[in-house]
Amino acid sequence: MRLAVYNVENLFDRARAMNLDKWADGKAVLDKFAKLNALLGKVAYSGADRMRIAGLLVELGLEKSDSSEFVILRQNRGKLLRRPRTGGVEIVADGRADWAGSLELRDEPISEQAMQNTARVMIDVGADVLGVVEAENRPALWEFNTGLIATLGGAPYRHAMLIDGNDDRGIDVGLLTGEQFPIGNLRSHVDDRLPDGKPVFSRDCAEFEVTAPSGATLLVMLNHFKSKGFGSQQASNAKRRAQAARVAEIYQERRAQGYELIAVMGDLNDTPDSEPLQPLIEGTTLKDIFLHAVFDDGGRPGTFGPCGAGNKIDYILLSPALFGKVTAGGVFRKGVWPGSRPAKWEAYPEVSRPNEAASDHAAVWVDIEF
């Protein structure tokens, strides 16, 4: 059985702010979006809250309209604000109960060439069980599978499953499996909470039970941890550590319940030696596939961007019983922009410039003999 994980950075559509040429510009929009959403979710708005909400609405281009280049404000019932003729924004709601609606990011299509290259990666990796990170939703995952993969000559996966997560940008985690690897029981942890009442997981720690042809049950725990790109470093590190600790706890619970073949996979957004990941890396019996004797990293230790040691953020962590059944493994980088002068690795001919890359992430795969 070939097991793989791949952060596709969305299949069809991606938040427009995340597609800006300058990452700092997109980050600024997403930061403001997150801060405004948090303020809008408050039960009661203080005077300071109203001022900050109004300021952020203006900064996001919503001074004159409920729609801007990057975001949309939906006021379905009640009123959040009014717009005086003299300009500016005045918040008229006293709290979240006074209006029904939402703040949404505008999406835009991913380039056709990038979509095709994403499908090529999936086809060429040839996984029987493929964890997909940053998929928009299950219909999109299924359509990409039966449409684009099939159009390029690949064999579509028989099973596709995705549980909607906590992120409002449409970057969820899902699983594709072949005919001989049906998906059974599912568990979601979107509602796991921190002591302050906030969700533990930025997306989810989704659990999928997969049955192999031999009858063995593989438990896949698919994750996408908090990125380093938004909020303070201290807050981001604390969030990832809490996520790592909760995954470690779930892993220990499953082991105690008798599960022996467990794979914890996904984009953990930090390096193996980082403090936030230690509850998972050092605090459990899970083993990183990169450390297996048969694993081939292609001469580079990372999985993201230039693939240096500081960019090792995508993982397949295996329980001891599963680690002992590994026969091969590697990193597939042909869909990642290789740079130029000179190119860092062999990429598809269709990846002739950065925006044609399938993703900034490489796929990680491992062969397991059941």
Rank of each mutant, 00 (worst) to 15 (best):
L194H: 08
F225V: 10
E209G: 03
D167H: 13
D128S: 11
L152V: 09
S188R: 13
Q243T: 06
C205Q: 07
R138E: 15
D128M: 01
A206C: 15
I171H: 00
P199Q: 08
F201D: 00
E249G: 05
F225D: 01
H159L: 02
C205L: 14
G229V: 04
K226Y: 01
L186I: 14
N166K: 09
S202H: 11
L130H: 08
I149E: 00
P182S: 10
L219S: 12
F181A: 06
T177P: 06
G147T: 08
D124F: 08
E136H: 14
Q116K: 15
P182D: 05
D128K: 01
G197Q: 10
R240V: 02
T146N: 14
I149T: 07
Y251F: 12
V129C: 10
F230I: 15
D164I: 14
V210C: 06
D124G: 07
P195A: 13
M221C: 13
R240I: 03
E249R: 12
G170D: 08
G178I: 00
G147F: 07
A160E: 02
V132I: 15
A245I: 05
V200Q: 04
E209F: 05
D191K: 13
R240F: 01
V129F: 01
D196G: 11
F201C: 07
N145M: 09
T211H: 03
A127T: 05
I250A: 09
V121Q: 02
L162H: 05
F208Y: 15
